[in-house]
C-alpha cells in the first residue's frame, strides 16, 4: 500500500512540474476575463477571452480561420525551407573552405546588417505582391540566422577531433558525416530555433503588404474596421504558432542531441557527488 502512495506522490509532483510553465499564461487569461466581466477595461478596446474564442469558432465555421492559417503556414514553411536551406549551404561552404570564406563572408556580413524588412519596397518592385514576394521576405529573414549558426558551428568544431579523424584516415565524406556535422549540430539547431522565431515575425509583416489571405491579412483587415476580437485572436494564434514551433525545435534538439543531455546529466551527477 505504501508503495502505491509514494508512486502517486511522485506522479503528482511530476504533473505539477509540467504545468508550472503554463501557470502565468492561465492566470493572465483568467485575470483578463475577470477584468472584462467587471468592466475594468473597455470591451471595444480589449474584448474578453471568451468573446475572442467564440469569434474564433465563428471564423472557423466559416472556413476563414483554417484557410488563412494554412496559407500562412505554407508561406512560413516555404520561406523557412528556402532561406534556411540557402543559409545552411552558404554557412557550410564558408565553414569548410577558406577561399569561399574570403570571397563571401564579408559580403554576407554586410548584407546581414541591413534589416530585412527595409527591403520590402525593393521586393515589391522586383517580385510584385504575389506569393513569391512574401516567401522571399521570410526566406531572407531565415537565411542569416541559419548562415551564421551553421558557419559558426562548423568552424568551431574541436580541431583535435578533426585531426583525429584525418589521422584515422576518414574519407572527406565520413569526416563530415561523423565528425564535423554532428559537432556543429548543436549550434545549427540553435540557428533553426532562432530562424523559426524570425520566420513568424517576418511573415506578419509580409502578409500586411497587399495580401488577400493569411493570418497577417486577417489582422490588418480587422484593424481597418477596429474589429478587436479578430485582432486579438490573430495575436493569440501567433503566440500559439510561435510556441508550437519552439516546442518542435526543442524536441528536435532532444532527439538529435541525446548525447548532450546524457553528458549534462553526467557532469551534474559527478559535480553533486563531488560535493559530498
Amino acid at each position: 500500500m505504501e508503495n502505491i502512495e509514494t508512486n502517486e506522490n511522485y506522479h503528482f509532483s511530476f504533473k505539477f512540474k509540467n504545468s508550472l510553465p503554463w501557470l502565468i499564461p492561465v492566470f493572465l487569461i483568467v485575470f483578463w476575463q475577470v477584468a472584462c466581466n467587471l468592466s475594468w477595461v473597455n470591451e471595444t478596446l480589449l474584448p474578453s477571452p471568451i468573446d475572442v474564442v467564440t469569434n474564433g469558432i465563428k471564423l472557423f465555421k466559416k472556413g476563414e480561420l483554417q484557410e488563412n492559417m494554412s496559407i500562412s503556414l505554407y508561406r512560413a514553411t516555404a520561406g523557412l525551407l528556402i532561406g534556411g536551406g540557402l543559409g545552411f549551404i552558404l554557412g557550410f561552404i564558408n565553414g569548410v573552405s577558406r577561399r569561399a570564406r574570403l570571397l563571401f563572408d564579408s559580403t554576407i556580413q554586410m548584407l546581414r546588417n541591413i534589416p530585412h524588412l527595409a527591403l520590402i519596397p525593393l521586393i515589391i518592385l522586383w517580385l510584385g505582391i504575389g506569393e513569391s514576394a512574401k516567401i522571399s521576405l521570410v526566406a531572407l529573414g531565415c537565411l542569416f540566422p541559419m548562415y551564421i549558426n551553421t558557419y559558426h558551428g562548423i568552424t568551431s568544431v574541436d580541431p583535435k577531433l578533426i585531426e583525429m579523424g584525418k589521422s584515422y584516415e576518414l574519407s572527406k565524406k565520413d569526416l563530415f558525416i561523423k565528425v564535423i556535422f554532428p559537432g556543429a549540430l548543436p549550434t545549427i539547431l540553435m540557428g533553426v530555433r532562432y530562424a523559426l522565431g524570425v520566420m513568424w515575425t517576418t511573415l506578419i509583416v509580409a502578409e500586411t503588404i497587399s495580401a488577400s489571405s493569411g493570418i497577417g491579412y486577417m489582422s490588418t483587415n480587422a484593424e481597418q474596421f477596429m474589429d478587436m476580437k479578430t485582432i486579438v485572436l490573430c495575436i493569440l494564434i501567433y503566440a500559439l504558432l510561435g510556441k508550437l514551433s519552439d516546442f518542435i525545435a526543442k524536441n528536435l534538439e532532444d532527439i538529435f542531441l541525446e548525447w548532450r543531455a546524457i553528458e549534462r546529466r553526467n557532469t551534474d551527477a559527478s559535480e553533486t557527488s563531488g560535493d559530498k
Partner: peptide, 10 residues
C-alpha cells in the same frame, strides 16, 4: 592521443 578524442555523439 593524450586526450581520448572520442566522438561524444557516438
Amino acid at each position: 592521443f593524450q586526450e581520448d578524442r572520442l566522438l561524444p555523439w557516438m
